[in-house]
Simulated assay, not measured.
Amino acid sequence: MRQAIQKFTNHLRKRGSSEYTIYDYCRSIQKIFTDLGKNWLEATSSEIEDLVFSRTCSIATKQKYLAQMRSFLNFCYAKGFHPLSGVSIFLPKVPKKEANYLTEEQIHKLLAHPMDRMIKVAIRLMLSTGMRVSEAHSVTKEQLKNAEKVGELYQITILGKGRKLRSVFVPEGVRADCLAYAGPHKEKIFEVPVWSLVIGVSKISKELGFHFSSHTLRHTFLTMLVKSKADLYRVQKLAGHSNIAITSRYLHTTDYDLSETASLVKNLAFS
């Protein structure tokens, strides 16, 4: 199994997956096969499904685990490593929901909370730019030093999801914090494994008593843009979304918003 997972990770890298995504895949796959307690070549789709559905986690998380297993087994089946094709694994439907985000009060509590300097710098970088954790982790000191100033922000180009290039804009104070933290000897801002940042953010979430993850910081940045009436297509470009439907998850429309929109026609004859 170890050899199959290694070849699968190489496949994911060629496909453009981030190091954190690869780590998450490997961790989930190994845990499922370990919990099954049998030779991985003898595992059936129903045993995998029963194991995942027995876990006390959300339906969305269960779907993620099953999708990861399906992808891995499809790869192994195509390469002749495993007799079971991933298409036999059932994926539950998950209702679409709006992206979760931090309120202004929670943001203030988060930024005022005492924490490790590295995690503080990472949180400020993700929260102020909308970068994914893997994207923030890959930022180099050279990128920030040579960043072009556009208006009040500093523009850098990052390699995002699916190995697509996009521009992000870093506030001057956040840029200065990153460079000061890196010091004169580091090439990257964060010279630790990417999951160290993920775990560090999770630890702060537990200390504060309200749930958020590193990805919630990205959701918060994009939600704040939309709530500030930013053009949705420009937000899509900043986010690096391939589809405007993904960006629309950040609208968080309320009844008051709808009423306010409907009232735009109040001056017409039928009002």
Rank of each mutant, 00 (worst) to 15 (best):
S196N: 13
L111N: 01
A99H: 05
K141R: 15
E104C: 09
M126F: 07
F210C: 09
G200C: 07
R166D: 02
S213N: 02
P114H: 00
H108K: 14
L153K: 15
A122V: 07
W195C: 14
E191S: 08
L153Y: 12
E191R: 14
A182T: 04
G162K: 05
G151C: 04
Y101L: 00
E104T: 13
F210G: 11
E104I: 13
I107T: 10
K186V: 03
K96H: 12
Q143F: 05
K109R: 10
E98Q: 14
S205C: 04
K109F: 04
E207G: 03
I89Y: 04
L110H: 01
L91A: 10
L125Q: 15
Y181G: 00
S128W: 12
H108I: 06
A147W: 10
G86W: 11
G86C: 12
H185F: 15
H137T: 03
G209R: 08
M126Q: 15
F212G: 09
F90C: 10
P114C: 05
L197C: 05
I89W: 05
Q155G: 01
E207V: 05
A112R: 04
V174G: 12
V192W: 02
T140R: 01
L208Y: 11
P92E: 02
Q155D: 04
V150A: 08
K149T: 11
G151W: 01
P95R: 02
A176I: 09
I199N: 12
V194F: 08
K93N: 09
L165F: 13
L179C: 07
K109G: 03
F210P: 03
R132C: 03
S196G: 10
H137I: 06
Q106K: 11
R166P: 03
I204H: 04
E105D: 12
E98I: 13
A147Y: 13
T140K: 00
A112W: 01
S167N: 14
Q106N: 10
